[in-house]
Amino acid sequence: MIIIGEKISVIAKKVREAMNARDPKPVQELAEAQWKAGANFIDVNIGPAEENGEDLMKWMVESIQEKVHSPLCLDTTNAVALEAGLKAHNNEWGKPLINSTSNEPDRFVMLEMAAKYNALCIALTLGKGSLPADAEERCGIAAEIMARAAEFGVPMEDLFLDPLILQVCTMQDQARHAIKSVKMFQELNDPPMKTVVGLSNVSNGVPKEMRSLIDRVYLTLLMYEGLSAAIMNPLDKELMDAFKTTDVFLGNTLYAHSYLEM
């Protein structure tokens, strides 16, 4: 499973301050720590970035890739900023990942970018209007996005379907629907579609000391259904240990007494 490190986000005060001050150090340190902990992609969430988004994303991409030789997940709703990030991205270490398109018309441009820059793309199974009620509704939206991706010339293997993880504390049933979606999404294509989740959404709103437990149990269930990627916190040791242990049970990693240290 692909791990997308979530720590570089405009929501975090330290990151936001570093972005505003154009101070690369805190951002680079977070990127390096996540990479060393096992992240395959580093998420770069600059938010809507309405002012100077273009310049900010370019600066972020260049600052991070100066220190960390991994591909980045470019996380913004601002298409102009996104394009600047895709141009700056060094593809030597892998294709960039766009976060994200959906079934909302103002997000279609993300598929256009994916095709133009040969990037991977996350597709949130979210349409205009209310939240999808269950897995079946999510599959319907996924099929529409897949058809659109094909029109834009984005290969199916470059698309990661995201069932949209919601808070367990307010929408308990949705946790189960999302697990089922991960299973059903794969059946929409042959070879199976790839799937991704924003894992920590599930524990949003629960008491802080319970978040890691909820994240890791949920991750285990999703991995069992064949999840391909997760945007998560690789600096959470217990979460990473659960991830590695699940990989052993699923036969993805060979057991040895020291497997947690690898």
Binding site: L254, Y255, A256, H257, S258, E261, M262
Partner: peptide, 14 residues
């Protein structure tokens, strides 16, 4: 024993 083979290689590289 493949698991012990892996373990020994880990210990040696550590």
């Amino acid at each position: 024993d493949i698991n012990l083979a892996k373990q020994l290689n880990i210990l040696i590289t550590q």
